[in-house]
Design a protein around this nucleic acid. Structure first.
Lengths: 261, 261
DNA sequence: CGGCTTCTTGATCTCGATCAATCAGCGTGG
DNA sequence: CCACGCTGATTGATCGAGATCAAGAAGCCG
């Protein structure tokens, strides 16, 4: 561990700047000029990383900031009044948390780290006033929200029309694309969430998840042991997922060794 | 037919102003001052009403405007590549259409009038520049999008965890609240959509919808004939729907008038 | 190493999709 | 104005996929 000169063990997080963040091209500051980026950087608050299982905030907490995932991953869980919990979202690096809370000013669910995770806090009132003066930022904010709405629609289609195999295929293709987007290999990664969470999220029993995964392995679509995932036949999985318009940038499955792009 | 003095048969629609619109308190201009309202009113384009079955736009059309429903109702339908269609949304008066298209700049589905329907067109680039100078409008836009995201989450919960009876109950409660919001009776209304659309939207077969409706009538929860709906026991239906935080403003079914927390 | 959670595998059973047929509503045109 | 024909709605009967129940295996943590 490098020893920071100024004291606090979190100094290095406070030091982190959007300008040097590897995700800045994917995150909100996307397409911001140097000067605007400075302004944006100024309103960000860095936080000590969350431990696995720790909550970023709780259901019912009042909303004041959105958060950008810097590293790690989180899940959003909503408790209904019978105490049933529903996993409604997973968040990966560069993605924004809390956009769904602006309307009610209350967080509609828990957001919990699935592993050691760090996030940037972006106070919403500051973000809003910055959006007033930086059209690029405003547009990007609209885009982010709009994109999330589109994703939600896809999820609704998945839940209401797809059979379990298709759901799980969609889920993995979606994860793969998002991992690729932030620089990881799309075909080899470690699942951040438990089978339980996947099942809950996809509206399926855990047992069903297990059985389908078994089937996927038999069919040589993927290799899984524990949480270690290797997608062997991306095309076939994608076809099964019926994911239209989904394109793997570089590392399309050549049924061979290129999986680690 | 009244004869408009200026010629075009659509003149009266062009005349309509936000200031005199009964929905202005629910729609985007919500909470705008008189002057801001003027500016907002200036960018709106009125349109000739759509006939039943007519498309406001088609899937794949490029996006340039959002629309506010003035009267009538519409459905959003997405066609996947196998030609399967999925109803993803219903739009009632005062609600905004097209917010999910900002990100891709392409409409992800057809939006089709369920009855004679009129809408206001709001060019998005104008809206965005107006949002730059009117913080209230910007915030309202963020809120609208955020609210839609929250609604989507609820829908996802409905689809992945609720049994058919609960889904249909939720659907009716939701409709009732939205009708009430724009001034109609929450407990007596005419369904704008076909059973088919409801089933598709809720991820259920039409036959299932029919059977459950039959059951609801037996249980005295509601009276339905054709598309004419009367909710007889709002509380019971609401309980069944497990709709938390849903409050009927005035006309709560007073089986016991205290249910309001 | 032991106790816990997480994951897998097997057996049963239920609920809703599907198929099939009939009925009702409604707009159209003779 | 009524008969026709279409689409949309209801009702019945059957079947299968996935939830559920139950048990065992494998990680994973202190």
């Amino acid at each position: 561990m490098p020893i920071p000169s100024t004291g606090s063990k979190y100094t290095r997080f406070h030091r982190t700047r959007c300008q040097t963040c590897s995700l800045s091209a994917l995150c909100l500051p996307l397409a911001l000029g140097a000067q605007d980026m400075d302004q944006f950087n100024a309103i960000i608050r860095r936080r000590a990383p969350l431990k696995k299982g720790e909550a970023l905030f709780c259901q019912g907490n009042s909303f004041s900031s959105v958060f950008a995932v810097r590293s790690g991953s989180l899940k959003q869980v909503t408790l209904d009044q019978n105490g049933e919990e529903q996993v409604t979202h997973f968040y990966l690096p560069s993605e924004l948390i809390g956009l769904d809370s602006i309307s009610e000013q209350i967080h509609p669910g828990y957001v919990i780290a699935l592993e050691r995770t760090s996030v940037c806090e972006i106070p919403f009132n500051h973000l809003d006033s910055l959006a007033e003066h930086i059209p690029q930022l405003r547009l990007q904010l609209f885009r982010s929200m709009s994109k999330e709405m589109g994703d939600d629609r896809r999820m609704m289609r998945l839940l209401s029309r797809k059979v379990p195999d298709e759901r799980l295929a969609s889920f993995f293709i979606n994860l793969a694309m998002r991992f690729q987007r932030c620089g990881y290999s799309p075909c080899s990664f470690r699942l951040p969430m438990a089978r339980n969470d996947i099942g809950n999220y996809l509206g399926l029993a855990v047992e069903t998840i297990s059985r389908i995964l078994g089937r996927f392995q038999q069919q040589q679509l993927m290799a899984i042991q524990g949480r270690e995932v290797h997608i062997l036949d991306f095309e076939a999985l994608n076809t099964l997922a019926e994911t239209q318009g989904c394109q793997l940038d570089q590392a399309r499955t050549r049924t061979s060794s290129d999986a680690s792009a």
